[in-house]
Write a protein that binds this DNA or RNA. Structure first.
Length: 922
RNA sequence: GGGCGAAUAGCGCAGCUGGUUUAGAGCAUCUGCCCUACAAGCAGAGGGUCGGCGGUUCGAAUCCGUCUUCGCCCACCA
């Protein structure tokens, strides 16, 4: 064996072995199930550091469960990522000189599927490199047959139940992709912009300039110039004035009383619009005059509804100005803007208005602008016909289970976030004007669509059905035979399906159920066995998108929670705390890291500093630590395997061996318990740290040094066996975190053994035994260690070469271990002399004669410093004990503890004083 | 504007149902070592008074109040 662990071929070999032996695969059986469904990455995505964190955590949980004897099943899969994938496909088509608009739906989908097949699943292959123990036989895709079936069935079902409706609403419109988005897909950014103060001439209803308004009450703020009176309207979006339909003031606003009941002329556009009054308008903001543009602002739309105002949509789907919607007599006034981009238009219209003297002033202004999460272009509020899910019902069923911890969140702080969202739930816009996705299973009569009102059917005549055939049947039933006859066509010719697709999350929210075919066949064996799943591991950024909605769908369709625990990971940042991003170039390629540090090293690196919910500041040194640890394990194994073993017990060694093995047994059991406890609390990094410390400190630095034979000498069979057994137990403890190296060494240990399991993966974590005297053993070793450290400390301080034997004078008998590890002869009884250095363990004083190395002055200084510290400590203790109220009020055991502190400190002070005396007299 | 969370060694964290030898590990730092398992290592050391102030208590990093600073989420003030 090489002195350096090289993970590369070992990792590949074992992963293949696991797969070939079907060790990842799960089938329902009599064992307790442990199910995890992967948060499906985008089908065309590639592995990044966030995935590494997320998937490693899942693998740790799954592998641990397997070792605990559960039937672990980790289901992998990918997400079709409607908008993101469609964008990528469009981009590629463009590079080939093809425009989406020139393709039919079918042609486009052909390209999209080709793209998916080409790039899809790369990420799943990459997960194998990381060591993920997914049941690949179960790999699913949100748009595969089963999942699509579930989506369509759920849509139809919710429509039937009245939870899905279609309506004309103000939605978030992405002008780049030309689709509606849900509220969750809009990200608001602070933006430095301007507040433009525009002059709206006060006119009569028929457009005459108003030059005389008579006497006005105190407090009114009038605006007047040579051309007459005008109102001042503040806006951040002057390009929307083409859609202005009113100006609104607060009826209580003293400054604007004079405007009540009057009319103004929209500058440049020329439309004459009324002043309306509503308390929504805030007095004192801007001028207190709000321009109302119902087609292009959510609030304005609400006002428009309230006062029955017209909406004039002045934008095309890609947010360019469209004058065709304006009143014919006005179109000429603004024709120069026709076809302009909205932001271009903003500049132009301000410039034009300034020329006309209609801009009062421009102020700097910070506001928030919504951007599309996917395309990163500013959202345009747009009135359109979309499909929505009524969410109140779902909020109602999903809130309680989380608040009362039926479903547990780690960390718990996200319960608040969750509650906040559910308590202010709004309907979910689920339709997208995209082709890549689940096509909305809604059908309309062509004639109604083509020429609204031409036929005598009610406008809400919509057919929702899972297949065309079913839709046709419904259509026939809906239409009287007379009507069909009158129209003279077959229903089948006239039904057309909704062009839109469903929001990707409308399939994701079914994931834990649909993976086991629980929508179409709610009573099948798999869903009965694997569901509810155990743990969900995901980022808090999709708590609303996904987690909350899965809980809703889970309860709606199974009556049960979709998962028992949700582990929210943090965000992986670089060591300067910046988010990892392509543009910053601060995101390392995980595959490259695995190449450099090994998968085990990378896994440990990312896990070590990743408590639930905390962001992790990634640095290569973390992986380095992981790699170094692998190396350490590797070399321990080399050492043990290199020993020559003899059956008989050498007498003089037996005490050491006995003490060491009994102590380590206790230590190991304790850590096993701790790790189990930490895992239950999902404190993964602490669990790993506990194993790490056990291995490096207790096992390597202490235990192995204790039992290590002298060079060239053999070790007894008994000690060797227990040592290997310890090693094996640690491998199992470590396996969930570092699957590869543990498998390699475990196989090596198991070689030739009869009835061994196929892999450490399916080995069992032993029962945790706690010996009655474990604490005493640990305490005893603690003291031995301290004595050894005491001697080593003196050696280091005095620069005594490691080879030079020293003498330890001890008042009590000490273990042989001290001799072996500290390199000193132990002399029991003798007293310390003026030429020795001393130290205290517990209340016992040990000393080391130093002869030539001694420096009385230094030694005195050290002892006196120690004495001072001890006296200070004693003073603190005495302050408490002398306080009657402390003695009276504190719990008895606390008082007893303080008394023990007092006695120990006094003993130590005594010893120190004596040593100082001795030194001084020398 | 509303809500939530956090501030503890150079760094990222644990401790926080108040009392366990005057605050703990890891990484980093410093010192000494290539002592034939491991320099991707070994041995040893230094370093914080627990964001500020006030309060409750015999006793507070731990509870309460307040201030400051960060972070996150939500929200239709043009």
């Amino acid at each position: 064996m090489e002195s350096k662990y090289s993970p590369k071929d070992i990792e590949q070999r074992w992963y293949q072995y696991w797969q070939e032996n079907g060790l990842f695969h799960s089938e329902p059986d009599g064992r307790e199930p442990f199910t995890v469904v992967i948060p499906p990455p985008n089908v065309t995505g590639v592995l990044h550091m966030g995935h590494v964190l997320n998937e490693t955590i899942q693998d740790v949980l799954v592998r641990r469960a397997r070792l605990e004897g559960k039937n672990a099943c980790w289901v992998p899969g990918t997400d079709h990522a409607s908008i993101a994938t469609e964008a990528k496909v469009i981009k590629r088509l463009k590079e080939q000189g093809i425009n989406k608009q020139d393709l039919t739906r079918e042609e486009f989908l052909k390209h999209a599927w080709a793209w998916t097949e080409e790039h899809g699943g790369i990420i799943l292959k990459q997960l194998r490199t990381l060591g993920c123990s997914c049941d690949w036989d179960r790999t699913a895709f949100t748009m595969d047959e089963k999942r699509s079936e579930a989506v369509i069935q759920v849509f139809c079902d919710l429509y039937k139940k009245g939870y899905i409706y279609r309506g004309l609403r103000m939605v978030n419109w992405d002008p780049e992709r030309q689709t509606a988005l849900s509220d969750e897909e809009v990200i608001y950014h602070d933006e430095h912009s301007h507040l433009f103060y525009l002059k709206y001439r006060v006119v009569t209803a028929d457009g005459q300039a108003v030059t005389d308004i008579g006497e006005q009450a105190e407090g009114n703020v009038l605006h007047r110039d040579a051309d007459g009176y005008y109102a001042v309207v503040a806006t951040t979006r002057p390009e929307t004035i083409m859609g202005d339909i009113a100006v609104c003031i607060n009826p209580k606003d003293p400054a604007n009383q004079w405007l009540k009941g009057r009319y103004v002329r929209v500058p440049k556009v020329g439309r004459i619009i009324p002043i309306i009054e509503d308390r929504y308008v805030e007095i004192g903001f801007g001028t207190g005059c709000l321009k109302v543009t119902p087609a292009h602002d959510v609030n304005d739309y609400a006002l428009g509804q309230k006062y029955n105002l017209k909406t004039i949509d002045i934008f095309t789907a890609d947010a360019h100005l469209n004058m065709d919607t304006l009143e014919a007599e006005l179109q000429n006034n603004v024709s120069s803007y026709h076809g302009m981009d909205r932001f271009e238009c903003r500049k132009q219209i301000i410039s034009d208005l300034q020329t006309l003297g209609l801009v009062e002033k421009i102020e700097d202004y910070d506001n928030k602008v919504g951007y599309s999460e996917r395309t990163n272009v500013p959202i345009e509020p747009r009135l359109s016909l979309q499909w929505f899910v009524r969410m109140q019902h779902f909020a109602d069923i999903a809130l309680a289970p989380v608040m009362n911890d039926e479903i547990q969140f780690y960390p718990t702080k996200y319960k608040n976030t969750y509650r906040n969202w559910l308590e202010n739930i709004k309907d979910w816009c689920i339709s997208r004007q995209l082709w890549w996705g689940h096509r909305i299973p809604a059908y309309y009569f062509k004639d109604i669509i083509d020429h609204t009102g031409a036929e005598a059917y009610p406008e809400n005549m919509i057919i929702v059905a899972s297949t065309l055939e079913e839709a046709q049947n419904q259509a026939k039933a809906m239409l009287s035979s007379e009507a069909v006859a009158r129209l003279g066509y077959a229903v089948s010719d006239r039904l057309i399906q909704d062009e839109g697709a469903l929001d990707t999350w409308f399939s994701s929210w079914l994931w834990p159920v649909s993976l086991f075919d629980g929508i179409a066949h709610p009573n099948n064996k798999e869903i009965q066995y694997y569901y509810p799943t155990a743990d969900l591991v995901t980022g808090p950024d999709i708590i609303f998108f996904w987690v909350a909605r899965m809980i809703m769908a889970g309860y709606e369709y199974t009556g049960k929670m979709p998962f028992r625990h949700v582990y929210f990971t943090g965000i992986v940042r670089d060591k300067l705390g910046r988010k990892m991003s392509k543009s910053l170039g601060n995101s390392p390629d995980p595959l490259d890291l695995i190449e450099r540090y090994g998968a085990d090293g990378v896994r440990m690196g990312i896990l070590l500093s990743a408590p639930a919910g905390n962001d992790i500041l990634y640095d290569d040194s973390l992986c380095e630590q992981g790699r170094n640890f692998c190396n350490k394990i590797w070399n321990c194994f080399r050492l043990i395997k290199g020993w020559e073993v003899v059956p008989e017990i050498k007498k003089e060694e037996s005490e050491i061996m006995q003490v060491a093995t009994r102590w380590f047994e206790a230590m190991l059991s304790k850590t096993e318990w701790e790790v189990g406890d930490l895992m239950k609390k999902y404190r993964l990094s602490e669990a790993l740290m506990a194993v790490y410390k056990l291995f490096t400190d207790e096992f390597s630095s202490w235990y192995l040094e204790m039992i290590k034979p002298k060079y060239g000498e053999p070790i007894t069979q008994e000690t060797y066996d227990s040592t290997l057994l310890f090693f094996e137990r640690m491998l199992r403890l470590l396996h969930p975190f570092m699957p590869f190296i543990t498998e390699e060494l475990w196989q090596n240990i198991m070689e030739g053994k009869e009835a061994k399991p196929k892999s450490i993966m399916v080995d069992r974590l032993g029962e945790i035994k706690q010996e009655a005297d474990a604490d005493a053993l640990l305490q005893q070793m603690e003291e031995i260690k301290q004595v050894i450290t005491g001697v080593r400390n003196i050696r280091a301080q005095k620069n005594i070469p490691p080879k030079e034997k020293m003498t330890l004078v001890s008042p009590v008998a000490v273990s042989e271990i001290v001799n072996k590890l500290a390199g000193c002869e132990v002399q029991v009884g003798g007293s310390s002399s003026s030429t020795s250095a001393s130290f205290i363990v517990g209340t016992t004083e040990y000393s080391v004669p130093l002869d030539k190395y001694v420096n009385v002055a230094d030694e005195l200084k050290k002892l006196e410093a120690d004495l001072q510290h001890q006296e200070g400590f004693l003073k603190g203790v005495m302050a408490k004990l002398n306080n009657e109220r402390f003695v009276a009020n504190a719990k008895p055991e606390v008082v007893a503890m303080e008394r023990k502190k007092q006695h120990d400190a006094e003993a130590r002070i005594e010893a120190l004083k004596k040593s100082i005396e001795t030194l001084k007299n020398a």
